[in-house]
Amino acid sequence: MTVHVRTTINAEPQEFLCEPGETLLEALRSRLGLTGTKEGCATGDCGACSVLLDGRLVPACLVLAAEVSGREVLTVEGVATGDTLHPVQQKFLEHAALQCGVCTPGFVVAAKALLDHNDDPTEEQVRYWLAGNLCRCTGYDKIVRAVLDAAADMRGVTV
């Protein structure tokens, strides 16, 4: 039985059909062409598929597509405002906080979620908040610095 889903993705109304057992990750990537959300494990252990569901950080691989009916989804494609990057995105570029870049969309969404409710996190808070986002290239150093700097930027402070 195909499910008809009406939802809001990146502030735009979206409608799609999906299988009842299909995940949000599969629907985003295969049905809606939103391939910025990555699959690293499909078991909720890597954070590459991080999205916001009604403002809450979740792994899209462990959400059924059918569940998002009537709710709001934000993916990495919706983080920037037009041509203006979110401070997290800008600081990732400035701090060279990405190497291969495949984990980057998940980090960007997760870091945005952190800064949405805490614009002055400690290094330890950043590290624990992002513990569900695996990065194998950077050793996290430059990622943590980028997030701390983005927070400072959002507070209007220069580090």
């Binding site: 252990d45 979740v58 792994p59 462990l62 997760a110 992002l130």
Partner: peptide, 9 residues
């Protein structure tokens, strides 16, 4: 219970 992402679920 799991990561921040898992906590959301």
């Amino acid at each position: 219970l799991g990561s921040t992402q898992i906590q959301g679920r």
